[in-house]
Design a protein around this nucleic acid. Structure first.
Lengths: 137, 137
DNA sequence: TTACATGCAAATACTTTGCATATAA
DNA sequence: TTATATGCAAAGTATTTGCATGTAA
């Protein structure tokens, strides 16, 4: 973790190392800034604002990926891990995972045509689940 | 607009009709709840909370689509309009539109396998733009 | 007439910022 | 030694909620 931070041009502080460790333990399951704060504050005494600031730096350097959620919060996972996407019911908020991610190959061609260094993507599908669809109308 | 609201099982109030009109005028360009409030408040005196509540109802009935943004806000457009997606630089926040949307045909098969009534999707790609990539490291 | 929608005011949740201090390189 | 990062406290912004009143069907 220390090496990864330094290689990215960031100082390897106690707090950041702890954050990277916790994110790695999630095995690709994204967690919110608040959850990351809870899991690192006990060990390091880190402040919420530091968690937010560090997540921004880590994302800018390509070490973590961010996904925005409907409740106005965002969640983060270590970059480059296997992941899938969610289909959410707009009525009951139930989510169902969608197998596979259709963007691995697409990213390459988009990066080539725009000149961007591709970091990741956020994809969320919305719909109405069978149960809710049966309820009204 | 009145018909569309009633058909969806919603009351066709002055405020909702104004919201639908404004959204239709955007021609697929999504606007925030705040922008929608500004554009409808002058005519109808509608309250912010009503705008938020109505947008939720409209989305649940499939009349509008919602996209969550990185700043914690969301933006809305009329459902079923032509749209594209954005590629955003995580350093300078500049966005570049991506031609076409790869999800029109995918949604159909996902709907079939999950039983969901598909309403829409949010897709945002992230990366580092050529200018920012040249700056550091 | 009645279930649904609205306005108002207050509250909530997530995130950002200013500034003095601390620390990794 | 110095640029970067942190902690603390306070502020900002988008959004939600309770409740009394209004209104479309």
């Amino acid at each position: 973790m220390e090496q990864r931070l330094k290689k990215a041009g960031l100082k390897a502080t106690r707090q950041r190392i702890a954050m990277m460790r916790v994110l790695a333990e999630q095995k690709g399951h994204a967690i919110t800034a608040e959850e990351l704060y809870e899991k690192t504050h006990s060990q390091t005494g880190v402040d919420r604002s530091t968690v937010y600031r560090s997540l921004t730096s880590l994302e800018e350097r390509g070490l973590v990926e961010r996904m925005d959620r409907r409740d106005g919060s965002a969640c983060y996972c270590l970059a480059g891990q296997e992941h899938s996407h969610l289909l959410m019911c707009v009525r009951c908020q139930k989510t169902v995972p969608i197998a596979g991610c259709p963007f691995h190959q697409m990213e390459e061609s988009i990066g080539a045509s725009t000149g961007f260094v591709m970091l990741g993507h956020t994809l969320e599908l919305t719909g109405i689940c069978p149960e809710c669809a049966a309820k009204h109308c």
